[in-house]
């Protein structure tokens, strides 16, 4: 069977080289589209990661909270791996900062014995970059709920509105990327299937004769599916080589135009998982396209129809 399949492949390329090249070209273009989708997805993820960094939380403390309670609170946040920095600001320091921000003349209020500062002491914590982007909102919400339950905590602020909007944007955008990717995949499969079909229809007589002499469906289909797999693999390798080349050119061009580091950092090369997906997609495109086509011709009755 192996010998038959390699003979079939050799014959197909020798006799129908133009159709084979056309099929590989179209499959390469479809797979390149997928590669650029992956690149776009990585760039999008990189940008989102960047935006999601530097989330901070401010915990406002009640007046008269004992030192031991504050220390315990600070320690629990500091020892958790979810915060990089935790900083305590006492009531007087916070008031001074507030009044300084209002204007130097406001500092006179400090000398007034009747004035009672409404500014509370606070703990400022910065979320660790090690926390995954997808779970940042959850971590912040979890800490907020936990801290609010503490009897010495007045309020917790972490830009809730912004964070929630960010989370819903993240979900929506990822959904769109996945939808677009699935659409491209189906359209790609259709194009590839039709392209292989065109190539196979040229060899309908071969299938008819094989049916005539009593070949089983497996015997007839296997060489065609193998041919499809090779087509897909060749197209996949071509698309990867071209994508890497175009990516390098794009980076060079971008670096010359702007040294905007975020864009350059986001445009990282194809990741190993996307290379794997590309190879698997190429082989699957080829095999499925070939199978879909050959099963339509190899009905068992095609010789009679001829």
């Amino acid at each position: 069977m192996n010998q038959l399949m390699s003979q079939h492949l050799f014959r197909a390329w020798r006799k129908h080289w133009a159709l084979q090249v056309a099929s590989v070209t179209i499959m390469t273009m479809v797979l390149m589209m997928l590669n650029f989708l992956f690149l776009g997805y990585s760039a999008f993820n990189g940008t989102i990661e960047h935006w999601g960094r530097g989330l901070e939380m401010t915990v406002y403390l009640k007046d008269g909270a004992p030192d031991w309670a504050l220390e315990k609170l600070e320690k629990s946040m500091r020892t958790s791996r979810e915060f990089d920095e935790v900083h305590f600001t006492g009531k007087s320091e916070a008031t001074k900062k507030f009044l300084t921000a209002l204007g130097p003349e406001s500092l006179d209020l400090l000398a007034d014995p009747k004035w009672k500062s409404p500014i509370p002491a606070s703990l400022d914590a910065k979320l660790s970059d090690k926390v995954a982007t997808s779970s940042r909102v959850q971590v912040m919400e979890g800490w907020s709920a936990k801290l609010k339950a503490n009897e010495y905590v007045e309020d917790v602020f972490y830009g809730q509105g912004w964070v929630e909007n960010f989370a819903s944007f993240l979900g929506g955008a990822r959904g769109l990327v996945v939808l677009f990717w699935a659409l491209s995949l189906s359209v790609g499969l259709m194009i590839v299937s039709n392209c292989i079909r065109l190539s196979f229809l040229q060899r309908r007589d071969e299938i008819e004769v094989l049916e005539l002499v009593g070949a089983t469906s497996r015997f007839i289909r296997m060489p065609y599916i193998f041919e499809g797999v090779v087509l897909g693999l060749v197209a996949s390798l071509c698309s990867l080589a071209l994508s890497y080349g175009m990516h390098a050119l794009l980076l060079n061009w971008l670096a010359g135009k702007w040294s905007f580091w975020v864009a350059l950092q986001a445009l990282s090369p194809l990741e190993p998982w996307s290379v794997m997906v590309n190879l698997v997609s190429g082989v699957a495109f080829g095999a499925l396209g070939a199978w879909n086509c050959v099963r339509r011709i190899n009905t068992g009755w095609s010789a009679a129809a001829g």
Binding site: V209, G214, A303
Partner: peptide
Amino acid sequence: SAIPYFRRRIGVIYQDFRLLRD
């Protein structure tokens, strides 16, 4: 699935020969 095995017991000749050119 039995049809190919049945065809192997029959010999068929057509007017247009049905040979593979390649």
